[in-house]
Amino acid sequence: MTKLLQTLFDGLAVGSLYALIALGYTMVYGILQFINFAHSDVFMTGAWVAYVVAATAGWAALGGDAPPLYAGLFTLFASMLFCAILGFGIERLAYRPLRKAPRLNVLITAIGISLFLENIGQRPELFGTQPQKMPQLLPDTTLFTIADVNFRVVDLTVIAVALVLMAVLQWLVFHTRLGRAMRAVSHNFSVASLMGINVDAVISFTFVVGSAMAAAAGFLYVMKYPGALKQPADSTWILLGLKCFVAAVIGGIGNVRGAMLGGVLIGLMEMFGAAYLSPHMRDIYVFSLLIIVLLVRPAGLLGRATVEKV
């Protein structure tokens, strides 16, 4: 019973992380219909920027049990800001010139950006080729225990921050003018522009929001797993990004709520698989789920099948 609840809790924590990243994939796919391969590298950059900020500021060395609360918040916002600018720049410089190009060209460009970020990140002037350990910004303690299940501060923070960000996004997309414009563009690109919507601005905004979310996920990821800050070109990052894309597909690509649902599902599936079957095979559960979904319900759980115009 304890194991069940603990796994459930862990799965929710990981799942909300995945959901944050999946949102970026799904929003871009919804509007531009291509897999933004560089998204996992924005996530990676977010994690590394968080590390650089935290390590440079030296809060962890202040002594005492834990660095002040503002340290974490400052790091989070610094990372989000950096990646928001990065995302804006990527869209502006690489994707926008290809707006009318075949989708395959955009996909290849995205792969190019992904490779570029990874390998430029490995430069000694930037992040280098060595994995690092994230300084601790939160007390590594258990906040409370219910039925022998440990609710660690870190995990609760991850869930809380992810929930807040997703609530903000939800509000943005469904309750603001800008959100309505986003949904309009994703529904029909050319009609939206005829209706006087500034499509370029909406797309830029989508990349900014998606990248900031990915950065937040990167920050939360290294808070949760301080030892897992692998070098930029390590396959961990692409693999994580891939899982989150799978989450978006499972939820129904292009669907914001679907991405959240898919992220949590994948997180739960992974944790339950790791706890009850074999911890080495986590990735395999995720991709098996993808294959099953593609076979049974290619449009995803919340997605609607689209009819191609002939």
């Binding site: 692409i238 891939l242 395999i284 991709f287 076979l295």
Partner: peptide, 27 residues
Amino acid sequence: PSLRLRGDYLAIVTLGFGEILRVLLQQ
């Protein structure tokens, strides 16, 4: 399974296949 679908899912599935294989080989 992946070639029945139109679009770029093949990219994802082939990438995922490589990863699954790597995990299996490492075991």
